[in-house]
Design a protein around this nucleic acid. Structure first.
Lengths: 335, 335
DNA sequence: CTGAAAGCGCTAACAA
DNA sequence: TTGTTAGCGCTTTCAG
């Protein structure tokens, strides 16, 4: 059986409330008593039951992180940032993966209405086209902070990167390097970040008076084999692009593999650029030009804001969108 | 204010206990009443407070996952497996990162003595040389399952891979390809997996009557720059190895980068092999030969065992070590 | 089949 | 400065 406050009280001939106050260093307890209590608590290896205090105090010191997946450098790094921020402040981190399923995401947010977590960090799934599930949780008084895959139709704090701009610049870079027939691989039209990247891409083409081919923006699916087939088809077609922008990291592999299989040389035949945080980007064959996102910082900043809000009495979250810029790192795949 | 059972009881003119039983589908409640209760619960969007039931029932439906880090394909994949297993069974997953610090790991395990989690999955830090912190938690009745970085001195269930054997085979492979002066990069002598890999390596050398150079086994640190310097020094030295085995994924980058910088050709000048789950291994320059671990499966299997044990009344965990084999995938870096 | 009541461990008003 | 007491929301005997 676990040691409880009651037990400490018995041992010390004090009341439970005295113990409780002593342990929280209340000013209304004498230094001497505090000393005795703390002493005894250590002696008996007393551990306060977190669920009892959660129930009582209606806060759990726990936050939820909802992500599409984790086999992606971006989210791995983001979790690192989040965990770091949380552990510094004594918070606990629950991880939930949607695997890009809206239904799962919805179910998770429904579940959060029960008070299991004090706050939520979320990067929505590719299928997510509405936000009532998120709004509902906010209406219940549980603060939500978006990061990376944000939704504009929810009025809360958001952390993202300059998707439009970095896509615009990436496109310009490819045009400067001589591309005249680009393709853009995207994962969802519902996702704001995906859309912003598409728009940055399209605007750059427009500004440079480049016609956008019909096949220019390719919708990829959540199925790796299918994507591979599509990309191979794209690269085998008549109108084979001379430059490809992969708007997410995991589309890099199929592009490189398809080029290998089709014996297309990167960058001579096709230039390749990817939004990616792959640590191995410089080691690829050829080294991959990337738009590298501030994953760790975004995670940490988002978590810090959420936690700051949770620690205050009046948990009022700003409604601003904070933009942390990405970096275009040019390597051989586009030179 | 949240909807509670009490509120439901008032609305339906029933007692709280009836509501509680109806919601848990108890046999002692009439079908009709159950119907009404469930109906009303949905109507009012009732969400049971998990901490109240945890407090009452002394189980949290939550497990902790303790990892050294997450910026590593192995652990990312493992978490995927763990999360999948947990969510299937309605469990929640708390993530804790030790960043290879024993002190942090110890503090976390101390904290788990309070009942926040029903069970623990752990892959110990590189600094972890003892296990009393783990034993203590087990003694408190909280089951612990090891995966990957296990410790033999704790009698509980463990999931690992055939480290010795795959290292042995990897070494043989390099010898067959003509290497005569190998180096092995390890991260810790305290870690069983690291030791097993070293021993597999050494045994292979012995079996082939190869002398092991003094510099053969290199202890790497937890500092990336330092490792890079060490590796560069190694590759610039007189006794430059003609083959390197990186016993963990994150040592791949510095090896490749050092080779680039020193203008050493892989595999002609140095063959490189890494224990790694990098998805980009086939795309590296040159494609990397890997010992690929069953990360997802290991995570999922470990989680499943732990959860099965938690769901039973008599939570008796086996004490066996289950070995899920790794795969040697030969690519250009060693041919 | 339904209800009353006790209590999980902790906190915080209110008394003393 | 310390103690008494009433819950937080839920489950579970035990009675009815």
């Amino acid at each position: 059986m676990s040691i409880t406050i009651k037990r400490l009280a018995q041992e010390l001939n004090l009341s439970v409330s005295t113990i409780s106050k002593a342990l929280t260093d209340s000013h209304e307890i004498s230094a001497e008593t505090k000393q005795r209590v703390i002493q005894k608590a250590q002696e008996l290896n007393y551990k306060p039951n977190p669920y009892a205090s959660s129930l009582r105090g209606r806060k759990s010191k726990t936050i939820a992180v909802v992500l599409p997946e984790i086999a992606d450098s971006f989210f791995s790094l983001a979790i690192n940032g989040i965990e770091e921020a949380a552990s510094e402040k004594g918070y606990h981190v629950l991880i939930y993966l949607t695997h890009e399923s809206f239904l799962k995401e919805e179910a998770m947010l429904k579940d959060f209405q029960n008070g299991r977590v004090d706050g939520i960090l979320i990067s929505v799934s590719r299928e997510t086209a509405g936000s009532t599930h998120i709004q509902e949780v906010i209406d219940r008084g549980i603060p939500v902070v978006f990061f990376d895959r944000i939704r504009e139709d929810v009025s809360t704090a958001k952390f993202t990167t300059n998707d439009y701009e970095s896509s615009y610049n990436a496109t310009l870079h490819l045009l400067e390097k001589g591309c005249r027939n680009l393709s853009f691989l995207c994962i969802s039209r519902d996702l704001l970040i995906s859309n912003s990247r598409i728009q940055g891409y399209q605007q750059a083409l427009k500004d440079k008076n480049m016609p956008e081919a019909e096949t220019a923006v390719i919708n990829c699916t959540n199925n790796a084999e299918e994507n591979y087939r599509m990309i191979k088809a794209l690269l085998s077609g008549k109108q084979r692009p001379d430059g490809i922008i992969a708007s997410v990291e995991k589309l890099t592999n199929p592009v490189y593999l398809a080029c290998q299989e089709l014996q297309l040389r990167i960058p001579q035949d096709v230039k390749v650029l990817s939004f990616s945080n792959l640590e191995t980007a410089p080691l690829l064959n050829p080294a991959l030009t990337t738009v590298t996102q501030p994953a760790f910082d975004m995670g940490k900043a988002a978590a810090n804001l959420l936690l700051k809000c949770l620690q205050k009495k009046h948990s009022i979250l700003g409604k601003d969108t904070q933009v942390i810029p990405s970096t275009l790192i040019v390597r051989q795949s586009t030179v």
